[in-house]
């Protein structure tokens, strides 16, 4: 699928995933290595945004034909796990505005409910990096995108960044929002009965925060 960008796999990336997927990894290391991976994912996500040509003069007096960002951006994290990705985002985009969306699953209906939303007022004119580390069923993130669209964000201006995605999740999300780029670290096997990604990473928010 051409709307999915998977981080180019190599030993280094694989090594980072091995640490954070290991159930015996302590929180300290989990946070450190997740942050490292997230930073790489954010760089990859930024690369999906539009650029324009820009020529600069170097201190040697020579011209360099380069590029620069063509648009205003912002981040939106899905509370709580998505907030773990803000450090990585801020590490590469110092002054970026970050919006937040809280979506909770209704225990009886299993349907996601919007609990809280706070977005930059001019979000409609921005490219949005949507942050949520796990793409399992895709229910939550689709709900979050609904909110963004309601706030005037164009579908093609959204890049969804996550660490691990399930094939079911990608399929579901892409069927709802085919124009949104998904940037992911690795695509796993499938979901188990409790809708956890297999082999996955467990509950990302729990492992990162509590």
């Amino acid at each position: 699928m051409d709307n999915v960008v998977v981080l180019k796999s190599n030993n280094q990336i694989k090594g980072l995933f091995t640490i954070i997927r290991n159930k015996d990894t302590r929180r300290e290391d989990f946070v450190f290595y997740s942050d490292r991976l997230i930073r790489l994912l954010v760089e990859e996500g930024l690369n999906c945004l539009p650029f324009e040509e820009k020529t600069v003069i170097t201190p040697t007096g020579a011209e360099y034909k380069g590029v620069s960002f063509a648009s205003k951006i912002c981040g939106v994290s899905i509370i709580r796990a998505g907030e773990s990705m803000e450090i990585g985002l801020r590490a590469v985009c110092k002054h970026i505005k970050i919006g937040k969306i809280l979506i909770q699953r209704d225990e009886s209906t299993k349907l996601p409910h919007l609990m809280y939303v706070k977005l930059p007022h001019d979000i409609a004119n921005r490219q949005v990096l949507l942050l949520d580390p796990m793409l399992a069923t895709g229910g939550t993130v689709v709900k979050a995108v609904d909110v963004l669209i309601e706030n005037g964000v164009k579908e093609e201006n959204i890049v969804f960044i996550n660490l691990i995605a399930s094939p079911e999740g990608i399929k579901f999300f892409s069927s709802k929002y085919p124009k949104i780029k998904i940037v992911t670290g690795e695509i796993d096997g499938s979901l188990n009965e409790e809708k956890y990604i297999i082999p996955g990473i467990g509950d990302f928010g729990n492992r990162y925060f509590t």
Partner: peptide, 20 residues
């Protein structure tokens, strides 16, 4: 750098074939 194969168990009790 040189890496070796490493299999770890994830919190959902599945194997992940990784590198170290």
């Amino acid at each position: 750098l040189p890496f070796r194969d490493q299999v770890v168990t994830t919190p959902v009790d599945h194997d992940y074939h990784g590198k170290a």
